[in-house]
Design a protein around this nucleic acid. Sequence first.
DNA 1: ATTAGCACTCCTGGATAACGAGTGCTAACG
DNA 2: CGTTAGCACTCGTTATCCAGGAGTGCTAAT
Lengths: 348, 348
Amino acid sequence: MAYPAAPLDERKARVLRAIVSHYVSSGEPVGSKTIAAEYDLGVSSATVRNDMSALEEAGYIYQPHTSAGRIPTDAGYRFFVNEFASDAKLPPSETRRIRSFFTEPRWELEDALRQTASLLSRFTDHAAVVFAPALERSVVRHIELVSLGGDRVMLVVVADTGRVENHIMVVPDALDPVQLERTAEMLNRVVVGTPLDSAAKRILDDVERFPLELRPTAERAARLLEEQLAHRESERMYLEGTSNIVDEEKFADLETVRGVIGALEHRRVLLELLADAISIDRVEVRIGSEIPVHEMQHCSVITAPYRAEGGPIGSLGIVGPTRMDYRRTMAAVWEVADSLGRMLARPS
Amino acid sequence: MAYPAAPLDERKARVLRAIVSHYVSSGEPVGSKTIAAEYDLGVSSATVRNDMSALEEAGYIYQPHTSAGRIPTDAGYRFFVNEFASDAKLPPSETRRIRSFFTEPRWELEDALRQTASLLSRFTDHAAVVFAPALERSVVRHIELVSLGGDRVMLVVVADTGRVENHIMVVPDALDPVQLERTAEMLNRVVVGTPLDSAAKRILDDVERFPLELRPTAERAARLLEEQLAHRESERMYLEGTSNIVDEEKFADLETVRGVIGALEHRRVLLELLADAISIDRVEVRIGSEIPVHEMQHCSVITAPYRAEGGPIGSLGIVGPTRMDYRRTMAAVWEVADSLGRMLARPS
DNA sequence: ATTAGCACTCCTGGATAACGAGTGCTAACG
DNA sequence: CGTTAGCACTCGTTATCCAGGAGTGCTAAT
């Protein structure tokens, strides 16, 4: 990711690293004396001051006011993440904690995903989102039509990823149970084994082979599937740990907090934030102004895809203040994504 | 609901009503002069002062400090709700707004419920919860067993309320598709038409009639259903509008806000708050200390059941600060519950 | 290039004072 | 006896001032 091209000699880079580390844990603007005293750079505070001046010039840090210490800018965090965080690993004990969470048996996909979000949230102290396996990456396993009485029929689609989608549809003329069953049977013959995102097309292509009286129902089902994929807002997602956003220290004013929580409630915003995560095979970090959501200028978003055998099938991530422990959080997001993928691939 | 037995003569009651009204909209402690000037009680501020003194004595209002106006206590709000709010109605235009929301076609139960929560939240400016139709009140319409490959089988249960429950189960010895289908068929014969909460028992009672090789699967399914109902945390609920809790004015300190949002994230808490709503055929209000959750002492909860033809099947409600517009909010909760029930009973 | 020294800036926190909203009490009134 | 006008009193709020101190930038020496 782009940051000011100004090359940093090694010491300046170390100073920047020290500033970010210290600010993240203390929350106070950090001064040259602190850096010189607590991080052994082998130079005096005056030298650090010169470096800091250069770092400010280059746009990595800034002073909230004349007589205060320095705070990293978004570019400063970005440099830190790019240069110092890619190798981050969790301590073994914590890795074990996450792994063991996924060995507990959990039979419902929805619960598993929600609990994953909850784990990630508690583990990182940030708000966490987990997306259900994407419909496009799912293969139809079974279709069922269930009469709910009257002219209402429920269309149930089971996918190999464990997702179950259901829609109520109204059939013009009440079909009798036998016809319903035959329709379902024929639908299954057409779509089982095909990816969900081409299922609708398959049905419509083959609908002519259906007996005339079954066609409207089949077509209706196809159209429902199409719609479902089109406006993807029905994409299932699990958001947990919103209360972490209300952490006294990191977001100063209520206005900001409210904006962030409000934004998180809009599924579309989350959808966009996590949209590409699935196709990028690593932990992705977006910092402050890199996020295209006005209310979230003080947030960072960390995402990762999770993968079953066949490749990435979904994504998850966290949302927190730009002032966060990137190394730890990135490692945690990666670890959880990895473990979730493993679990879905072969549930114990 | 209990409040101090001290009888209030009519004028005192009107003073109390004025205090509550004014405080709810202004957020400032209200003084005797304001009451005398803005609510025509036909008496002077000195008289109001005397009444207020009595009201404080009786526990309906209190002074945050000596030289301030009065604020209603929980008991004060309670009196207000009991005496002045039961007849509350929404203005026709707003009723229409709610009704029209429910005439839009929406075929997925989950989406419908979530959007209902969202509507209620936006309409009242509070956090809103909608519970899915209770499993105990649902009747089994269809059971399906779908092989997910390997030894994983998905159990899908469709209920008449539109709910679809699904669990992945592991069957000891891989059954072939024909056997799976036969099992499903037999299960259907046993449980279709029975309430969900007795379905498991029915299966276990009848399991002896199943061919030996199908029994383990049938039993496993029964046990899954049982578990599902036992720890009801899997009860589906939709929470929207949490960001309303972060409203600058009403909850003073961040600590409180965080506590409330944190509590709302615990599904169990919400479950308990809305548990009895379903069996009480009216709008129920719980105010501050009446709520058995420590973090929510500054909240009020307003709930109502929603009913299909056969009686109440679910509940919904809002959570807000004790300082809220009870009349409007109670009316809104009622109206939304009513409309939701109608929609579920006969979807357009 | 690094560092010690120093003047300068400006935020923070405590103290003080003026202000004003609201009360409780008393005495007068119908 | 309930109601009311008048008034002294309380106490939180806000503004102002001041001292303290953290941190900087600059300069000159090493």
